[in-house]
């Protein structure tokens, strides 16, 4: 097994998924919103980046737009598109709470996925957009894959700092107040529904950016990369790391991606054993999920650490 290559992949993909997990953490732990369709915002970012940087369609291509703009325009567009999509989907869904919100966001993500799959004029349908522009290349002696890992890590760091700034401000304390007691917060003048909508919109932006970086990294924007499974994986990462802890969420993302990449990179002798390994990976992830929710080890560690100080 090629460990350095594996670790660099884990660092890159882990950072990308870490960004999504952080956004989910903000929505769930601070905003009290269960978003079961987070993959859609991720996909919007990836597709927007691909469409903005893609050359005009030719030959067998069925997509209608390829703007062929520089990469930074694509990245900006990805963030903006995710924001716009959050505004569009948040408007009807955020009136719902709890599990109804979970179901509607899930429904929106499925509708969007089925749209990408069937509407060839956006992104070639099932085939997807390939050869998505990779802007960085080798930086002198540094190979491209390290540059990528660094870019992904920077995005994660930037998201982390931005969210921390936000949550440390009076705005963040107001959010916590709403989460803890909505009636009390509203009666002291905090617009709960409005603030929740703002959190939903703000947290969609880094998810869109992460989608753009993901599309660069895989050089693909394809419906099969953006299934409900992505949503579940990010949720598992969030729950793994303790849903209330920002660092836990990031650690959970890295741990899960590491686990998956190891299984993927393992040299299997036969197709059948590789297939069984894939199923075992599913079983193990599921068990981990159940066990962590049941015993909540990370919450306990945190509480103990707090009690000591």
């Amino acid at each position: 097994m090629n460990w350095p290559q594996l670790l660099i992949t884990v660092a890159t993909i882990g950072s990308i998924f870490g960004v999504v997990t952080l956004a989910l953490n903000l929505q769930y732990a601070r905003g009290g919103m269960i978003n079961f369709g987070i993959v859609a915002y991720f996909a919007v970012g990836a597709y927007t980046y691909a469409i903005f940087t893609q050359p005009s369609p030719k030959g067998l291509d069925q997509y209608a737009f390829g703007l062929d703009w520089p990469w930074w325009a694509g990245v900006l567009a990805a963030g903006t598109a995710a924001l716009a999509f959050a505004a569009l989907t948040g408007w009807p869904t955020l009136r719902l709470r709890g599990e109804y919100l979970a179901l509607t966001t899930f429904a929106f993500a499925e509708v969007f996925h089925s749209f990408l799959l069937n509407e060839r004029r956006i992104g070639n349908g099932t085939v997807g957009l390939s050869n998505v522009e990779r802007p960085f290349g080798d930086w002198g002696p540094i190979e491209e894959k390290y540059v990528f890992a660094a870019v992904a890590a920077l995005l994660l760091l930037a998201t982390l700092l931005a969210f921390r700034q936000l949550l440390a401000s009076p705005y963040g304390r107001a959010l916590d107040a709403i989460r803890d007691d909505e009636v009390a917060a509203e009666s002291s003048g905090k617009p709960a529904a409005n603030m929740r909508r703002q959190v939903f919109l703000i947290s969609a932006v880094p998810v869109g950016l992460a989608g753009a970086v993901y599309a660069m990294f895989t050089t693909l924007a394809q419906p099969s990369l953006f299934t409900a499974e992505v949503t579940f994986i990010v949720w598992i990462a969030l729950v793994l790391g303790g849903e209330r802890s920002v660092y836990g969420a990031m650690l959970g993302a890295f741990g899960l991606v590491f686990f998956e990449e190891v299984v993927r990179a393992w040299p299997f002798e036969t197709v059948r054993s590789a297939q069984i390994a894939a199923s075992v990976e599913h079983i193990f992830t599921g068990l981990l999920f159940i066990a962590v929710l049941r015993f909540q080890p990370f919450d306990r560690i945190q509480r103990r650490m707090k009690a000591r100080t």
Binding site: E99, Q275, E281, I283, F284, L287, F289
Partner: peptide
Amino acid sequence: PAVLLITSTGVAFVIGGVIDAMVGT
């Protein structure tokens, strides 16, 4: 209900994986 909902996703993964491993594609 939220924790139960998320747990049941884990259960779905486990059952799905067991069926996959036993039945195959």
